[in-house]
Simulated assay, not measured.
Amino acid sequence: MLMSNTDRPARLHFMANGFRVLAPGDHVLCAVSRARIPLDDLRYWSVAEQAAYASAAIASEAMAPR
């Protein structure tokens, strides 16, 4: 039986120039907004936090010094 990755969150390991899929899926959730991000649209993440972000603005806000 084939398993579909549709509507299943992926588990990723974020690296400086990309990411490695640890568990297959079709999306990840934004660490701040909890918005669903399709893997094909994932552009912003933090290697240190191992977190995905939905937009550049959200990523900048999350990584800003406090």
Rank of each mutant, 00 (worst) to 15 (best):
A31F: 05
L12C: 05
E49Q: 15
P24F: 02
G25Y: 00
H13Q: 14
A51T: 05
I58H: 02
E49D: 14
R34W: 10
A64D: 10
V32A: 14
S46I: 05
S33P: 11
C30N: 05
Y53H: 04
G25N: 06
R36N: 04
I37M: 06
V21I: 14
A64K: 12
M63I: 07
W45N: 06
P38F: 00
R34E: 10
G18A: 11
V21P: 01
L22Y: 08
V21H: 06
W45I: 06
V32T: 14
L39M: 10
A54P: 01
E49L: 15
S46R: 08
F19Q: 01
A23I: 09
A35Q: 14
E49S: 10
S55D: 10
S60L: 15
Y44V: 07
R20W: 00
V47Y: 03
L42P: 09
A57H: 05
M15S: 11
A59V: 00
V32I: 13
R11Q: 15
L42W: 01
R34H: 15
R43P: 00
A52N: 02
Y44E: 11
L29R: 13
L29F: 12
M63V: 07
S33Y: 02
F19R: 00
C30P: 06
A64V: 08
E49I: 01
L29K: 12
A59P: 00
L39T: 04
R11P: 00
R20K: 13
V32S: 14
D26N: 14
A59N: 04
P65Y: 07
H27K: 08
A35E: 15
Y53W: 05
R36I: 09
P65C: 06
I58Q: 11
M15K: 12
V32D: 14
L42G: 02
A64S: 12
Y44K: 02
A23S: 13
D26T: 08
I58A: 03
Q50S: 09
A57Q: 14
S46G: 09
S55Q: 09
L22G: 00
A52E: 06
H27G: 05
M63H: 09
R43W: 02
W45R: 03
A64N: 10
A48R: 11
G18Q: 06
A62D: 11
V21K: 00
R36M: 09
H13N: 11
D26F: 05
D40I: 07
L42S: 02
D26Y: 03
E49A: 15
M15A: 10
A59L: 15
A48M: 01
V47L: 07
G18N: 09
R43I: 05
A56P: 05
R36H: 08
A48H: 10
L12N: 05
A48G: 12
P38H: 01
Y53P: 01
Q50H: 05
L42R: 01
F14Q: 03
A51G: 04
N17R: 10
Y44P: 00
R11L: 13
S60V: 06
D40C: 12
C30W: 08
N17H: 15
G25M: 03
Y53F: 14
D40W: 01
S33D: 14
A62N: 09
V32W: 07
A51E: 12
L42F: 04
G18D: 04
D26E: 12
V47N: 07
V28S: 03
L29V: 04
F14E: 01
L39A: 04
A23L: 10
L39F: 07
N17Q: 15
A35S: 11
L39P: 06
L42D: 08
L22N: 13
S55F: 03
A51K: 12
A57C: 06
V32G: 03
I37W: 02
L12A: 03
